[in-house]
């Protein structure tokens, strides 16, 4: 139940606009129409296991976990 929440970030230099993050976590990532760069929307927080999947699947290796949060109660 008390999954570790972590915060994710996108490196805009590395992002290729592949949209994998938007597919996997549409509440957290959105790829911009013009520049085709993904950015974090909202709190940018995800349970660690789901954040790991997004990091694993990002084709540009542009997503990282920046800051472990305290476990949610």
């Amino acid at each position: 139940m008390s999954a570790d929440l972590v915060r994710v970030a996108v490196d805009s230099e590395r992002c290729i606009g592949g949209g994998q993050c938007e597919m996997l976590e549409p509440e957290v990532f959105l790829v911009d129409d013009d520049e085709a760069i993904s950015s974090v929307i909202g709190s940018g927080e995800l349970p660690r296991d789901r954040a790991d999947v997004v990091v694993h699947r990002c084709p540009g290796a542009a997503i990282s976990i920046v800051e472990p949060q305290r476990p949610s109660e």
Binding site: E13, R14, C15, I16, G17, G18, G19, E22, M23, P26, L30, V31, D32, D33, D34, E35, A36, I37, G60
Partner: peptide
Amino acid sequence: DAPDHTRLRRMVAGAFTPKN
């Protein structure tokens, strides 16, 4: 390869996102 790849891909990638 990057950076050419990134620049060229971003020219069109916006049209191919899940939302669009």
